[in-house]
Design a protein around this nucleic acid. Structure first.
Lengths: 183, 183
DNA sequence: GTATCCATGTAACCAGTTACATGATTGC
DNA sequence: GCAATCATGTAACTGGTTACATGGATAC
């Protein structure tokens, strides 16, 4: 199962909301959905080229001001169809590979304080992420961003996903630190 | 930051507990630490070869019964040193890429029942994982496996990590389903 | 006038996956 | 006698990362 061709569908999904450039797609990933998805320029641009060749996206030539370097793409009918098909398929899952947990698992040769330090850093990272997400949630609630009520609902749910996950990580840190503190 | 060379350190970590073959390493990944780590044969064997060339592991020639195909490796002093250094470095984190959340985010064009179905499948998957981990925890508690008290402590903590994460996912599913049920 | 953001791309690289190949041993 | 497990490996592939290159526009 694993994961393949996800960048294709991430791009189709983003373009299904609104047409945009490679740069726009990257920005969308880094802001709106950073919480659950990630892409690089080095992958977006070549994939855009291949999606164009496949005919699932097309250049939106109209309404471009002269001299603009921006290349705006929009999803085609074929693209929408393939996207809907993909949506209907069960999500593949990537096998877990947590570098932090790998380190933690084999950290018995480290002094107690170092292990506590490791856990503390991990907690701080998740606490920061948590705070960030809560802030974004407030901004979203306060209609700081201009999006449809429908879209907002999905983004809110995705934010909750991140918040709940961060809470879980923080909870684990508390438990794990407890083991090493009382010895 | 991202993640590089993790297989090297996963192998060194596993061999730091006890010498073993490529097959043993794979089995260890699939059972004991499946919860937080994953490896393929197609990667383990070539990496073992390169680790041998680097001198961080060595063949344990002694005590092998005749005609055995098993190749037992053990970590060298150099390997232990590199492993300790790696342990001391802060863990890199892989940017989140949840195929499920990607689908969910853009699923607004799907009928309500399909979205509920998606969420339900996701919940079932995590519930199953949760049940499995709780069972493993019981087996571990009942000294079903032969491991040192020290090792047990780390494995228990890693199990808790999986259990807490599954609980979080299940919690999210409850919330998300709620959004679509009451409309 | 300089830093930051906008904007697009390529090339080299690498980690990891999948599929294939082979064969011995053990348990039923 | 057959299936499952033990056991090791290679080759082709692919998805994604990193580094490099370039240059215009905007803000301070």
């Amino acid at each position: 199962m694993a994961m393949k061709n996800n960048t294709k569908f991430a791009i189709l999904g983003i373009l299904s909301i609104a047409p945009g450039s490679g740069y726009d797609i990257k920005k969308y990933c880094d802001t709106v959905i950073a919480n659950v998805w990630h892409e690089n320029y080095g992958h977006i641009y070549p994939v855009l080229t291949s999606l164009l060749a496949e005919g699932v996206i097309r250049r939106q030539e109209e309404e471009q001001e002269e001299g603009s370097r921006r290349k705006i793409y929009e999803i085609t009918q074929k693209g929408r169809e393939e996207f809907i098909t993909w949506l209907g398929e069960p999500a593949g899952y990537a096998p877990v590979r947590s570098e932090f947990m790998l380190k933690f698992l084999f950290s018995s040769s480290l002094p107690r304080e170092n292990i506590l330090q490791m856990i503390s850093e991990y907690r701080v990272r998740h606490q920061r992420k948590y705070d960030e997400l809560v802030q974004t949630q407030k901004d979203l609630e306060a209609d700081y961003f201009i999006i449809s009520a429908d879209r907002k609902q999905y983004l809110k749910a995705a934010l909750r996903f991140g918040i709940i996950s961060s809470e879980a990580a923080i909870k684990w840190c508390g438990e794990a630190a407890g083991i090493f503190e009382n010895k």
